[in-house]
Amino acid sequence: MASDGVVVEIGKVTGSVGTTVEIPVYFRGVPSKGIANCDFVFRYDPNVLEIIGIDPGDIIVDPNPTKSFDTAIYPDRKIIVFLFAEDSGTGAYAITKDGVFAKIRATVKSSAPGYITFDEVGGFADNDLVEQKVSFIDGGVNVGNATPTKGATPTNTATPTK
């Protein structure tokens, strides 16, 4: 695992066909100046998982989280898009600690492993708008004895992609 920078880890949970599971997305290594904004994309298989919603985690402190935390689910493109932009203008609602960034709610549709993997990152910046190093650890849903650990090695991303 990367020793510096922010680590975004997609949790690994267990479920069975027809059940709804909650998959946490963790941030670790949050910089001392916090995270003022970030955007990134995960990939998944809508034939295996139906993403039914995404909720902000406990490290989102904006009293009205829909102003700073936004997501979009595109089953036709097989992606989930995340956007966080601190909304106070003063840094008061920045992410300042490690913990759960988001909770992905999904219904298991198939007995195949439900991988959720890193696809791309736009950027991560602290309260001074300084770009942060970030790496990703894939996860998803274990169905029966299947284990979604494909790509469990962190993917280092030093520069934003478009």
Rank of each mutant, 00 (worst) to 15 (best):
V8C: 15
L83A: 00
V13G: 13
S88L: 10
D76P: 06
G11D: 14
L49N: 15
A85C: 04
V7Q: 05
I60D: 07
P31K: 15
I51M: 02
S32H: 11
G151R: 09
T149G: 12
Y26M: 15
P31R: 10
I60T: 14
G91L: 03
D55A: 11
G11R: 10
A94Y: 00
S88T: 04
V134Y: 02
V141I: 14
A106C: 14
C38T: 03
P160H: 14
A152C: 13
G11T: 08
V143G: 10
A36W: 00
T14Q: 11
G89Y: 03
G11W: 15
G91I: 06
K109I: 09
P31I: 15
Y74I: 00
G139A: 12
K33V: 03
V141P: 13
V100S: 13
G57V: 03
T153G: 14
V41T: 01
T19H: 12
P56D: 11
P75V: 05
G91T: 04
V25W: 06
S68I: 14
I59F: 14
I79P: 00
R105V: 14
N156I: 09
A125S: 02
K67L: 08
F69P: 12
K103M: 14
T14G: 06
K12G: 06
Q132G: 02
N37H: 01
G91S: 13
T19C: 12
T96D: 08
I60C: 05
I10D: 13
G123S: 01
G5K: 11
N47E: 10
D62R: 14
A92H: 11
G53C: 12
F40R: 00
A36F: 00
E22I: 04
I73C: 07
D76V: 01
F101Y: 03
A112Y: 04
D126F: 00
A94S: 05
P46C: 08
D55S: 07
I35C: 01
Y44I: 13
R28P: 10
N47T: 05
P63R: 12
F84K: 01
I54G: 02
A112M: 02
Q132N: 04
S88W: 15
V108S: 12
P154T: 11
T71C: 04
G91Q: 04
R105I: 03
G11K: 05
R77W: 15
V121I: 15
K150Q: 13
G15N: 09
I137E: 11
